[in-house]
Design a binder for these strands. Structure first.
Lengths: 371, 371
DNA sequence: AGGCGCGATCGAATCGATTCGAGTGTACTC
DNA sequence: GAGTACACTCGAATCGATTCGATCGCGCCT
């Protein structure tokens, strides 16, 4: 406890100084209830003299049962979320909508498995105020990318009676899901490649498992994978190219795309993929850069398709072929759903569609006849 | 009140079911205090049966006097903050540091002037839970760009005894400021232009006043201006070019830069500026685009210098000459200061320096002899 | 003049947990 | 066997406000 003057004034102090009861003072502040102007003035004056900063939000929210805070749960590290343009856009949309009810956004990182060990709650030298998903003072929660790893947290939220909305993710009882046509969109992208004549394609996926393992996507990795988004997009790609080799990236970053490209494109020209489906634009940008490094020309020798529709910096003169998703709108939809649920109304699930935007990073494969 | 089952179990219910007192149940949950294993097990079992989701964070934080939440106050609209790469980087840095003490970030928009009218607090049909700067359940606050408009809020925070740190902004009693050498850095940038031979330069400023007025910077505008960052950078530019015409942008966006460029570059070649100092990279990118529109070549006919050092998308083949500022580090410094203050230690002010990074958007003016 | 209505104010209960000091019972020591 | 320590548990006060119902005047209508 830093400087917690035990002398910080309370509403009772103000009331005493103004010569009224605490209840009257409360009315004077909240405005709900009839208070004589003179009295109200006296209370406010007393407050000013005592440097009373207004009702304590903690006490107020205890009594009122509402805190005015909406939690946004992100996957693991806060840093990564702030670097992902899609998540930023989603934040933006959520903020826009919940701003209407004057609520504020609380950014929460999904609690690590350490604290997940049910019932244990060891909490060694924890600095006394761990704000986790399960105990944060919020009125509702938005999950960005709802992984099974959050299952415990989610059921805790439900037990607490909080509305929960997930942006993408596996359907869970009691959670409203804002959906994205990840599978179908990717399938459309893959068909675009097939129509161009591609047969040997590679896939670079978003992190599949909680630990963000990098490398070849094996059955073992799939078994422990927890990202609905990555899995759905993978499924869409394999619907067209069932045997496509897939590499998992450790994150949605340009660097990861470069690494994946180096691994996937190291073989001879007649064995390596003629097209790569990347599960994000940042990864796609990295793949292009990686291909350049290896002297492979895009799109003549390698077609690359991304996902997201964010403009990636430094990609000029390439205009990425990609699946454009309405991230901002997804955020707004989530925000609207939250507001509705807080107002006691029903909110229904929304599903968003991505559109294929063809740029100049896809073309027929080298040896193929021009379509 | 949506579905607020009046029947949601409380710690007392759990205690009753487990056949212990509430105090013991509390101990069983918090772990602070000796509780027999058997008892603890019984309590946890009872909790499970009742679907008790753990202690109510509101009550807990009232009693403990801490909420584990750090507020980050941004200028006005949340949307704009999420679009500004500098602010994003600062968020990122803050999150990184306060993550160490398991605190969470609460994003708060500076309350509009409507609620600022001291004492009135009319609050018409406000949806019952306005979370403003002055009443948010937080343990400390970080102000991003501290404008005088926040003066009331700040004094409220101080009265409440909360540590307050500002990233840039006017020095205020009781607020620790993380500083940035805006004035000197801009002056260095301006000197770079002078050395190249420029004499007629224009300035595009960040929003100066709370209302984000766009247009020529007049004395009237300066009088009501409240952005320390914009003013300091303006001062630095005018230290070298005292008579430089300045246009205020309504926000740090590429579009705003384009608009400013159109206005400032419409005159004949021998009257219009040969160089423009933009107060952000996004504005600078807009200025370049605007110049291109008008058929003015950069850098041959117009030099452009930015501020920030963020890579702006779509600017290729330009490599912006700019003043690179360590935004992420600034965020970390703010976060560290907050943590220190929460631990009761003193935190000292930190000052950051920008470095001039010369790209290919600055060159000698058209008519000047080659230096 | 009696009664009604209403605005203003107050008392007391409540929100849900934490925490301190006091009270058990058991075990161990001298 | 008495005394002390210790481990555990409980009761009651507390955190700081909100809110419901009751009370008290007082003007006004009939």
């Amino acid at each position: 406890m830093p400087d917690h003057d035990s002398s910080r004034p309370t509403l009772a102090d103000v009331a005493a100084r103004a010569g009224v009861s605490a209840s009257t003072a409360s009315l004077a502040f909240s405005g709900s209830g009839p208070v004589a102007d003179a009295t109200k003035e006296r209370v406010l004056a007393a407050a000013r003299e005592l440097h009373y900063a207004g009702p304590d939000p903690r006490a107020r929210s205890l009594r009122r049962g509402r805190s005015g805070i909406i939690g946004v749960v992100i996957e693991e590290r806060v840093r990564e979320a702030f670097r992902d343009p899609i998540q930023i856009a989603q934040f933006d949309g959520i903020a826009e909508e919940i701003g209407r009810i004057d609520a504020a956004l609380l950014i929460l990182a999904a609690s690590g498995p350490a604290q997940q060990l049910a019932g244990v709650k060891a909490m060694p030298v924890q600095p006394a105020h761990p704000v986790t998903v399960e105990d944060a003072p919020m009125d509702a929660a938005v999950l960005m990318g709802c992984t099974p790893r959050l299952a415990d947290s989610i059921s805790a939220l439900r037990d607490r009676g909080l509305p929960v909305v997930a942006i993408e993710g596996f359907p869970v009882e009691g959670v409203l899901v804002i959906e994205q046509d990840n599978r179908d969109a990717t399938e459309r992208g893959a068909q675009h490649l097939r129509q161009l004549g591609h047969g040997r394609v590679g896939i670079v996926t978003l992190p599949l498992d909680a630990a963000h393992h990098r490398g070849l996507v094996t059955d073992e990795l799939l078994a422990i994978s927890s990202s609905a988004t990555a899995l759905q997009r993978l499924e869409g790609a394999r619907a067209v190219f069932p045997d496509a080799v897939a590499h998992a990236a450790a994150g949605s970053f340009v660097d990861e795309g470069v690494r994946a490209a180096r691994e996937m494109l190291s073989g001879p020209a007649d064995e390596r993929p003629t097209a790569i489906i990347a599960q994000s634009d940042l990864l796609a940008a990295g793949v292009i850069r990686g291909a350049e490094e290896l002297g492979i020309k895009v799109p003549d020798e390698l077609s690359v398709i991304g996902f997201d529709g964010v403009r990636v910096d430094g990609l000029w003169p390439y205009e990425l072929t990609t699946l454009e998703q309405p991230a901002y709108e997804k955020g707004r939809a989530a925000g609207r759903a939250i507001v509705r649920m807080l107002e006691g109304r029903e909110a229904e699930s929304v599903s968003f569609t991505s559109v294929l935007r063809v740029g100049n990073t896809t073309a027929p494969p080298p040896s193929a006849p021009i379509a």
